[in-house]
Computed example of a mutant assay.
Amino acid sequence: MKINLKHLALFVLAGITLNSCSDDDNDLVFEDAPVISNFELGMGSTHGDGHVAYAGSDIHLEADIIAEAGVQSITVDIHAHDLDVGDGEEEWDFAQIWDDMEYQSINPTFHEHIDVPSNVPAGEYHVILTVTDENGNSTEVVGHIDIMKPIMVSNLSIDESVMRGDDFHVEFMIEAVHGIHHVIVDVHAHGLAVGEGEVEWDFDEEFEDGLHEETEAEFHEHIDVPATAPVGEYHMLITVEDEEGNTHVIDRHIDVTAS
């Protein structure tokens, strides 16, 4: 049997080449860090550049991710710096890691909605999205979002005193992203002496006309005080409620005088 040495040499070389390629595939390492693009954040399911969310609602987050080595985890961190914390409010920081199969791929789309507590301070918050791949490389993108109250009151004008038998003036502007349901005005006193000819007076009324379902409206009312109302300090609570049950309360006092 004759052996063609030339053909044998080519056969051996081909085998070495194939084995070398196989070893190279086994040792292949992707060095590039993940790429994050089309980062969106905003209110509810709103897409685009409006970086606004509302307390008691949610923040929409979305981004396209390319990770040649595959995604290991995605982290979202939300925090603020030096915001004034009002009565009934609490500082809010958010951090969560997603490392489930839904996002562990080469090019996933990240899409989540983050609930915002109703008692967070309004203001600017930082949003950091971090993607880490299977090789430990990470990339982060930073955004900012304004968290606002669902009901905002401005240009407040309320009389501080009123002569009984007259009326007092209450006026302010309302902005309610979910629409106004109603405004309730409650005026009452505690422990006032009721003199001769006087009658204890409380006021509690619901206002809807010109307000109901409006997202922006002016509240302007004149409230009559009976001539028989006892003189003294009265406590006034004005409650603005929206169509989703969120409320904004204005707390004031007014003096009822004899003359």
Rank of each mutant, 00 (worst) to 15 (best):
G44T: 04
D27P: 09
H81K: 12
V127H: 05
V85E: 00
I151R: 11
V256N: 00
L8S: 03
L5A: 11
L129A: 09
V120A: 02
G56V: 00
T132W: 06
V183F: 12
A189V: 01
V194I: 13
G44F: 11
E89G: 00
H126V: 06
G88D: 02
M1P: 08
S259G: 07
T130Q: 04
W92H: 05
E200I: 05
V240T: 09
V52Y: 08
I223V: 04
S154G: 10
M163H: 03
D27V: 05
D49V: 14
E233T: 04
H188D: 01
G42N: 03
T239D: 11
A176C: 01
A80N: 01
T109S: 02
V85S: 01
V194F: 05
H220S: 10
K149L: 03
A176Q: 09
A189Y: 02
E218Q: 14
N135S: 14
I66W: 12
H178R: 00
D209Q: 12
R164C: 08
L129D: 05
D49P: 12
D224P: 01
I180C: 05
E241I: 04
E134L: 14
L8M: 08
D25T: 08
T239F: 11
E175G: 07
I66P: 03
I97T: 15
V141A: 14
E244W: 13
V256G: 00
D255V: 08
S259C: 03
E175C: 04
A14Q: 08
Q96C: 02
P117V: 10
L8P: 03
A53D: 11
G210D: 08
L41K: 06
G191P: 08
Y234M: 02
H113C: 01
R164A: 01
E90W: 00
G210R: 07
N246E: 12
I36E: 10
S118M: 10
